[in-house]
Amino acid sequence: MKKTMRLERWLPVALVAGILAVWEWQVSAGRMSALFFPAPSTIAATFARLLTTCVLPANIVATLSRVFVGLALGAIPGLILGLAMGSSSRLRAVFDPLIAALHPLPKIAVLPLIMIIFGIGETSKVVVVAIACFFPMLISTAAGVRQIHPIYFEVAENYGGRLLQVFTRVVLPGSLPLVLSGLRLALNTALLLAIAVELVSAREGLGSMIWFAWETLRTEELYATLATTAALGISFNIVVQYLTAKLVPWQVEREG
């Protein structure tokens, strides 16, 4: 058992290391175009340079601030409306069709409209991220409340629970697992949208770096920036996973 576990853990690492080694070797042997596929060592050197000259950190901060401001502006209202909609069938009847109509729209497509309304500055970018975060948070939260077994509400009522008590002791903890998966979706969406917006219209941020690297054909910078973006996405997921393990101890085992 333990041996296979260890093997499964190391296999992906070995696989990636193997691919990188072959890549490096093929480029140095001149069998692969260094323009399209710069050697991993070149990319690493570029990465180090971008890091030490503060180009990368500054752009990471720009992207992250869009992600988190957008997340706060979108996910918090999504959470609140989701809790309300999950609890009230009347609210659902009002908002469900609206959401069904708006949710499928690719959010990057509303950027021009948002720029007409909010101008071409920072506000528009954050607003688009916020709109994109709003929906996954709302939908997951409402589903989280709705999947709470009615028996738990009956228990609370039976013991004389008041509305606020029912909310804090049943609705919130009962929906928390799906709220957190909503948060994960919202974070991923926020990163996606922040990068997309930056590709199109920003002067700083990882997305604009990617675009700039393409326009000037600095492939090694392109790779370094892509790797950074991927690392951000992965660390978001790790953070939410950690949060989930901390906040939802009653579900950890079931997932494992």
């Binding site: 028996i151 738990y152 228990v155 002791r169 903890p173 009962g174 009653w250």
Partner: peptide, 10 residues
């Protein structure tokens, strides 16, 4: 209750 009466989150 018949079953599922205790709160899983407490």
């Amino acid at each position: 209750f018949q079953e599922h009466g205790v709160f899983p989150w407490m």
